[in-house]
């Protein structure tokens, strides 16, 4: 699905990613963990195509395409979805209008027909139930006046609507109480299929009790320094990151 090789990225002249390698296959769930400032959110931003970051080296192959050559919207249209750590508010633009525009532009890109209003509304009903999102939120302005939990659920709702190949959840669990966390995780699990893949970026092991990863990676100082089975997350939770730092720094 996605193969990242020796990725280097910097912002304002400061290198954040320093040779990152990662491969995620269809049907897999990968978790990326790491201490603050390791570069987790940078990785999400670079993959989504934020312009502030400069790619100085490396390559990213997304289903046979050079991802770095695509514009942000074309990456989205090719099926890359980023659930934002801090979802953006867009006053005056209804969630519905926003999603319909999005869905139709993606369809247009793929040469498919525009979705009819009837089918669209049916889809909204089906997918909003998935994350227990109040139907009223769908007609409100995008993220405006949403609670923290509602914003995160709205991200997963959008993910469900757009049906991406690769989803990147950037700290989607931060700030959520246990109920909201369960709802979000449930949504993600229900959307899982052999054709798609998920990268879960998180700080806490807690989320991984609900979204069980196939592989856990530790990102430290701009690189993946350790990968292992889901038990690695538990180990990190118990022992913190210092032992990994020590291991890396010793090398």
């Amino acid at each position: 699905m996605i193969t990242i090789k020796n990725l280097h990225a910097s912002i304002d002249g400061k290198e954040i990613l320093k040779g990152l390698n990662l491969e995620v296959k269809a049907g897999e769930v990968h978790a990326i963990m790491g201490p603050n400032g390791a570069g987790k959110s940078t990785l999400a931003s670079v993959l989504a195509g934020r312009e502030e970051y400069e790619i100085t080296e490396g390559s990213v192959d997304f289903d046979g395409q050079d991802l770095l050559e695509l514009s942000t919207e074309d990456r989205a249209r090719e099926g890359l979805f980023l659930a934002f750590q801090y979802p953006i508010e867009i006053p005056g633009v209804s969630n519905i209008n926003f999603l319909r525009t999005s869905l139709n532009e993606i369809r247009d890109y793929k040469g498919e027909e525009q979705i009819s209003a009837k089918d669209f509304m049916a889809l909204v009903r089906e997918k909003s139930a998935l994350v227990e999102l109040d139907a009223k939120l769908a007609s409100r302005s995008v993220n405006e006046g949403f609670s923290g939990g509602e914003k995160k659920r709205n991200e997963i709702f959008q993910m469900a609507m757009l049906n991406p190949k690769l989803s990147i959840l950037d700290e989607t669990d931060s700030g959520l109480d246990i109920d909201a966390l369960r709802i979000v995780a449930n949504g993600v699990n229900k959307l899982k299929s052999p054709e798609n893949a998920t990268i879960v970026i998180t700080h806490y092991q807690r989320l991984l009790d609900y979204i069980v990863p196939d592989v856990v990676h530790v990102l430290y100082n701009g690189k993946i320094v350790k990968s292992g089975p889901k038990e690695l997350a538990l180990e990190l939770e118990e022992k913190g990151y210092d032992w990994i730092k020590a291991e890396v720094d010793a090398q």
Partner: peptide, 13 residues
């Protein structure tokens, strides 16, 4: 930020 959010959902500039 708003423009980027839209772009990430596949909406043109």
């Amino acid at each position: 930020d708003q423009i980027f959010y839209c772009l990430q959902r596949g909406i043109s500039e």
